[in-house]
Amino acid sequence: MKKKAVIGRNLSLGYQKGDLKKEVLEKLNFELFSGQLTCLLGPNGVGKSTLVKAILGEIQPWKGSIQLSGKDVHEYSNSDLAKTLSVVLTEPVSPGNMTVGQLVALGRIPHTGWSGKLSMQDKEVVKKALADTKISYLEHERLSEISDGQRQKAMIARALAQNGQIMILDEPTAHLDLINRYEIMHLLREICQKQEKAILVVTHDLEIAMETADQFWLLTCGLPLISGIPEELVLTGEINQLLPGDKFHFDPEKGRIEKKIGSRKWKIEGDPISSFWVEKAMDKSGVPPVSEVIYVEKSPFSLQYKGILYSSLSDFLSFLLA
């Protein structure tokens, strides 16, 4: 049985402005486990940030409770909360004059005395956080001179140095390139497994999350929070809650979101992978249905239609659309 790091019970959250009360989320129940990477997915504006703020203790729930390691979040003092929970937020940080090492050292703030002087032990923790995120080589670089992906890893290292049991990351992979997205999510997975931390990641990258997360929390308008193992949510089809309307769906065969292709308009025969991509391209270009069969050859790639041979897909498409 995994240890429950965060427990939310019957939670209602919202904002109040004057007499106007706006309820954002109601009757949420969730559990965040130690040693597991949990991804929170949901459309913009559904209240993901509100939920994160509530877990950080920044807003008081209207109803229900949030417990961190068995104690209500509002019973924590500021500094105790900082020792339990660390964050990576979406807001940009830009103290360019600071080195990566100094940034990570800021994570030790809840643990140091009034002047913030680092003890030998603090320095060890900083070194380890840099090593765990694989950016030890950046220690003396300035924040203004490193890439976005490196800066995001430095922010994760800072959160790690804070040494809490729980880490919450709000869209840590936004604005990053594909490789960095994968690297950062795998890094987080490695950290939570090796160090038994409970990590909650708010993300929109369904495919990468599918590959790395142990748990999914799906938040959709007007429905209770759905949680479960990602693969199970695919099998039950609940994953499609993320894709309202019937234009798109999650294709269980390919593990990705796709536009629903209605009835097949074309007869394509040959290598299945090649056929798939040919059909996709034809669909995107809006090729009208044709009666004859299209034959696809894999290597060397060629297409045969009405007895004419095409060596590239673009030639074929321009012929059909001409």
Binding site: N78, A82, K83, V87, L89, L106, G107
Partner: peptide, 9 residues
Amino acid sequence: SYAKSMGIN
């Protein structure tokens, strides 16, 4: 926000 998360008031 970050300052707050590090226990600063």
